[in-house]
């Protein structure tokens, strides 16, 4: 399957406090996280995330284990996050909540540029260039294909 989105470019070492600040965590209302996502980085960013593929620098999602970070991105309409490397808890959380995370080196693009990617075929395409990406482990592919860990659990029961 080929998925598509528009690039939103961010820097390196984006931490989870920056994705969703601690002051917004005490709720179960996911729309709260979506509306405050990246607020401390750029308050205007949240409204630009519908259909976005975030293209970030290394170590995306470092810091706390808060799952609200990938949930906020997903709720805000982010299609996938692409980075050369991810903080491991964020990476695992994203897969568990059904947000595609793609490890790839050498992806450079401009804000708003069209991006296509295939999780099954392990590539990302931007500016007419197809770049191979690190494939997910079979276990992670299975979780993501089910739509997340809860969905996979329910399928199996």
């Amino acid at each position: 399957m080929i998925e598509k989105g528009r690039a939103v470019c961010l820097g390196a070492d984006i931490d989870t406090d920056c994705i969703i600040a601690g002051r917004y965590l005490r709720t179960r209302d996911r729309s709260v996280w979506a509306s405050h996502v990246f607020e401390d980085l750029d308050p205007a960013l949240a409204s630009r995330l519908a259909g976005a593929v975030i293209v970030a620098g290394k170590n995306f999602g470092c810091g706390s284990s808060r799952e609200q970070a990938p949930v906020a991105l997903k709720e805000a309409g982010v299609v996938a996050v692409v980075a050369p490397s991810f903080a491991r808890i964020f990476f695992r959380n994203a897969i568990n909540v059904g947000l595609p995370v793609i490890e790839a080196d050498g992806v450079s693009c401009a804000d708003g540029e069209a991006i296509a990617f295939s999780l099954d075929e392990h590539w990302i395409e931007v500016g007419g260039r197809r770049i191979p990406v690190h494939p997910l482990s079979p276990r992670m592919q299975e979780i993501l294909a089910a739509g997340g860990l809860v969905a996979l659990w329910r399928q199996r029961q």
């Binding site: 706390s64 284990s65 808060r66 808890i89 695992r92 959380n93 568990n96 909540v97 860990l149």
Partner: peptide
């Protein structure tokens, strides 16, 4: 532990690592 600083427990020669909330439920 559903907290990133679960690694603290490695001081005992345990394998201790942080996970997310959904993972913890599973």
């Amino acid at each position: 532990g559903a907290d990133s600083h679960t690694c603290t427990m490695g001081a005992f020669g345990a394998f201790a690592t942080g996970v997310g909330a959904t993972e913890m439920a599973a």
